[in-house]
Design a protein around this nucleic acid. Structure first.
Lengths: 340, 340
DNA sequence: GGCAGTTACTAAACCGGTCAAGTAAAATCT
DNA sequence: AGATTTTACTTGACCGGTTTAGTAACTGCC
């Protein structure tokens, strides 16, 4: 790895000043065509192109935005829905000439990750913002957009109306005649501990739907699991060690796939013996189409990234929660109980 | 967005020098406990933490490595296998205190993306390195590791023995009695035009397997498609407009899923009517287990990232191709033709 | 011919840290 | 007690660009 030529080298060799070289690359109109040609020619000869670090430093911009992982990459990126959101964000980054950085916790610390992230803005997803994280974010003076975050966090946020979505999900299940229901919910640790996080909002929706059917939350079995394939499997095992419900409702498609895998391996057929309902709307899973709540990953990603870039651009950021749409997808994994 | 405090501000307010402040943060042993406490206290008060850009600039490191996308994010990240590799790379990045940047083409130009990428090293995957890209890479003086690249590119490379894998894949198909075979291969544009790229190596393996069965490459239908769900669907459509083969072999699982979707929607059952074989070994697809060649995404990602970090560390990089293992996965989508 | 405006360029400040070299005072050694 | 080492800190160069403020030469105008 030889060392690179610097703007100085080009200036010297061409007989022009550093400024002239800079102009040759960035502001052709501020320099004569003759000088420009000469400089660019010598630059090509020496294999010079402006150092992105130095350029970014002097411009005060990183030309990168960050996607802050609330957990280790294997966990956080193990969810296809998260990956789909990231893909959408990456798309918007490209349109803006930016790069997307995946920011994992730094030595197990999210605040440290925030302090060191070489980015101009951050997108969080499913992050519970505690005091330390908040301080780190404030300390960076960076625009932040949260996906599935809390309004109370004070950041602009993108998400769905989780209460309504929870209601719709449970309402569909009840409408199909199910009464013996188990729910695979999300872990408190990763998605927040405060009262109005995603899980709580969805649970509120469940409660409302159940109430309309004369039931209550306490009448269903509720287990926590990470939003992952293995988490879903384990959750199913725990549920089945209790009893076999007629429907298992999950808060993440990837967990639903794990549930399905666990059921299948026990010879339990879906949806005949046990129905399964997911949440998210991940794609390309082959097999039976999952009955699930669909919330567009690309819409979530694109909208959050757009909001972030407009904040980076004009320095004004609304602290508002924007809702995107959602819908129930009739799949093959939810059975209608006849005679109900 | 107020402006951040600088090291100067802390120095002034605390009565110490910039260096002392720097030491307080980075080299506690070079400063008295008293001074350290005082400085850190004032820093906390003013919400100061060292600016990562300035720190990186003066250290000459970005603390980021890049994953160079050969196509737009939606295409490149639409493949679950790619995402799994990225997740594995991100894992290694975390262990090294680095960040992983997704580098899309910059205004449709990969060389421009390379020139501007704020990273200390690059990993490419399935990239065809033309002259311009090579020059850009050389110009950056960055360590590069290629996944599924060419030996001729001169970069250290990670991949499987694609000839052997192609042979194994086709051999299994032939061994199951299939003779009417269609292949969904990868696009030349994205994966290379030169003779010994991934596609060509696998084709060579096909040819060898076919030859052993007294057949040749020309006796099978070969269509190109992008390594994507929709690409697989379209490829299946093109194949079926020709005739209905007994087995469709693909070079990417995600394309196989697209093929399956196309077949299913026509009422063609798998594997009874048409068998499908994939390549990669993506996970969590629910549905029938795909018969496929499994090459560990996490091994590929981890190995390539490890190689890159060792190059970043000690400045010595072998220009060697490392092979990881692969295996055939007996799934439910490949039918044995009895009486053969 | 003198003045304003334009063109083409340059010198030097600046971004915010790190770090090598240097200094003064205190501690240790002989 | 004087020489040496150690401790605790500071000064200032440096990373490689961008950008502001300027200058000198040239152009156009009356």
């Amino acid at each position: 790895m030889g060392k690179r030529a610097t703007i100085q080298d080009i200036a010297q060799k061409s007989g022009y000043s550093k400024t002239a070289v800079s102009f040759a690359f960035n502001a052709p109109e501020k320099i004569s065509a003759e000088a420009r040609d000469r400089i660019l020619c010598i630059a090509r000869e020496l294999g010079y192109s402006p150092d992105p670090m130095a350029r970014n430093f002097s411009k005060g911009r990183h030309m990168a935005i960050g996607f802050l992982l609330p957990q280790n990459p294997d966990k956080a990126l193990g969810n296809p829905y998260t990956q789909a959101v990231i893909a959408a964000i990456a798309e918007v980054c490209q349109e803006n000439g930016y790069v997307l950085s995946i920011i994992p916790p730094f030595r197990s610390s999210i605040p440290e990750a925030v302090k060191n992230a070489p980015v101009d803005g951050l997108i969080t997803m499913g992050l519970y913002v505690d005091r330390n994280i908040r301080d780190a974010l404030r300390g960076r003076c960076l625009p932040v957009v949260s996906i599935d975050g809390l309004e109370e966090d004070g950041f602009p946020s993108v998400g769905i109306d989780d209460e309504a979505a929870g209601y719709l999900q449970m309402n569909k299940v009840l409408g199909h005649g199910h009464r013996d229901i188990a729910v695979v919910s999300l872990p408190k640790t990763a998605y927040g501990k405060s009262k109005s996080d995603v899980t709580r909002r969805r649970e509120a929706g469940y409660e409302r739907a159940l109430a309309e059917a004369g039931m209550s939350l306490s009448s269903i079995l509720m287990v926590e699991s990470s939003a992952s394939y293995s988490g879903g499997k384990e959750a199913a095992d725990r549920i089945l060690s209790d009893h076999k419900p007629s429907c298992i409702v999950t808060m993440a498609d990837i967990a639903a796939l794990g549930v399905i895998s666990s059921l299948s391996s026990r010879g339990i057929s879906i949806p005949e013996d046990v129905s399964v309902v997911g949440f998210d709307g991940i794609e390309h899973t082959a097999g039976p189409v999952l009955s699930t709540i669909v919330q567009s990953a690309s819409e979530k990603g694109r909208l959050s990234a757009s909001m972030l870039f407009s904040a980076i651009g004009d320095d004004s950021l609304v602290t508002e929660r924007k809702h995107i749409g959602f819908a129930f997808q009739e799949g093959a994994t939810l059975r209608r109980i006849y005679g109900y």
